[in-house]
Amino acid sequence: MSEETTTPEITLEQLSGAYAMRAKFYMFMFDVLVENFGNDKAVELMSDATYRLGEEMGEKLQAHGPANIEGLTEQFLQGIPCRDHLFGPELRKCDHEGMEIKFHKCPLKDNWVAAGRKGEALELLCKAAGAIDAGMFSKAGFTFEGETWKIGDTGCCRLVVKPGSEAEAV
């Protein structure tokens, strides 16, 4: 028996493959929802599901809520696998008032574009999938005001997180 050697290239390839599979699932699920319920309901249903996934992910960030923006930002950025290669985050702001991160890449969006999605169809997919961020940061106790990619934008989404409402009461 030989031991399998893991190199950063293999890990990146495997991770990229996992994101490609996730992107295809989102895309096909969205298509089925649109065919059965139309665009608005499809975005609503898919957003509900991705928001719930985000809530589960947000549990690990709760120790920073509702106001430790610096701690939240550090843990969030450190938790992004292959972040520079796959996401290209640009930290634009991080202080007691909030944080802003612009993602210049997204493996989900990149796969949707490669599959031929563009325009409104791409914008709606991004909106539905982007609810994951709202769920994650809200569950952690913060106020989320981010934006997903829209026609004419460069890169991908922009995360904007501010202290949660409970921070004002403290």
Rank of each mutant, 00 (worst) to 15 (best):
Glu4Ser: 08
Thr5Trp: 10
Thr5Asp: 07
Thr6Gly: 05
Pro8Asn: 04
Leu12Gln: 06
Gln14Lys: 14
Ser16Leu: 09
Gly17Cys: 07
Ala18Thr: 02
Ala18Arg: 03
Ala18Asn: 03
Ala18Ser: 05
Tyr19Asn: 08
Ala20Cys: 09
Ala23Met: 06
Phe25Glu: 02
Tyr26Lys: 03
Phe28Asp: 11
Phe28Trp: 09
Phe28Thr: 14
Leu33His: 01
Asn39Asp: 15
Asn39Met: 12
Asp40Leu: 06
Leu45Ala: 07
Ser47Cys: 08
Ser47Met: 04
Asp48Pro: 04
Ala49Leu: 11
Ala49Val: 15
Ala49Thr: 10
Thr50Pro: 15
Tyr51His: 14
Leu53Trp: 13
Gly54Tyr: 04
Met57Ala: 11
Met57Arg: 06
Glu59Asp: 15
Leu61Phe: 08
Pro66Gln: 07
Pro66Ser: 13
Pro66Asp: 10
Pro66Gly: 15
Asn68Lys: 03
Glu70Cys: 03
Leu72Tyr: 00
Thr73Val: 12
Glu74Cys: 09
Glu74Thr: 13
Phe76Thr: 06
Phe76Pro: 00
Leu77Val: 01
Gln78Ile: 07
Gly79Leu: 12
Ile80Lys: 02
Pro81Ser: 13
Asp84Gly: 03
Leu86Met: 13
Gly88Lys: 10
Gly88Arg: 12
Lys93Cys: 02
Lys93Ile: 03
Cys94Met: 14
Cys94Tyr: 07
Cys94Glu: 09
Asp95Cys: 01
Glu97Thr: 13
Met99Lys: 00
Phe103Lys: 04
Phe103Trp: 08
Phe103Thr: 01
Phe103Cys: 08
Cys106His: 14
Lys109Ser: 08
Lys109Leu: 10
Lys109Asn: 04
Asp110Pro: 01
Asn111Ala: 13
Asn111Lys: 09
Gly119Ala: 06
Glu120Met: 15
Leu122Glu: 11
Leu122Gln: 06
Leu124Gly: 00
Leu125Trp: 14
Ala129Asp: 11
Ala129Ile: 01
Asp133Pro: 10
Gly135Cys: 07
Ser138Tyr: 01
Lys139Arg: 12
Gly141Cys: 09
Phe144Met: 11
Phe144Val: 09
Glu145Val: 02
Thr148Met: 15
Thr148Ile: 12
Trp149Cys: 02
Lys150Ala: 10
Gly152Asn: 08
Cys156Pro: 00
Cys156Val: 04
Cys157Asn: 15
Leu159Gly: 05
Leu159Gln: 08
Pro163Asp: 07
Glu166Tyr: 10
Glu166Cys: 07
Glu168Asp: 13
Glu168Asn: 08
Glu168Val: 14
Ala169Met: 05
Ala169Glu: 11
Val170Asn: 05
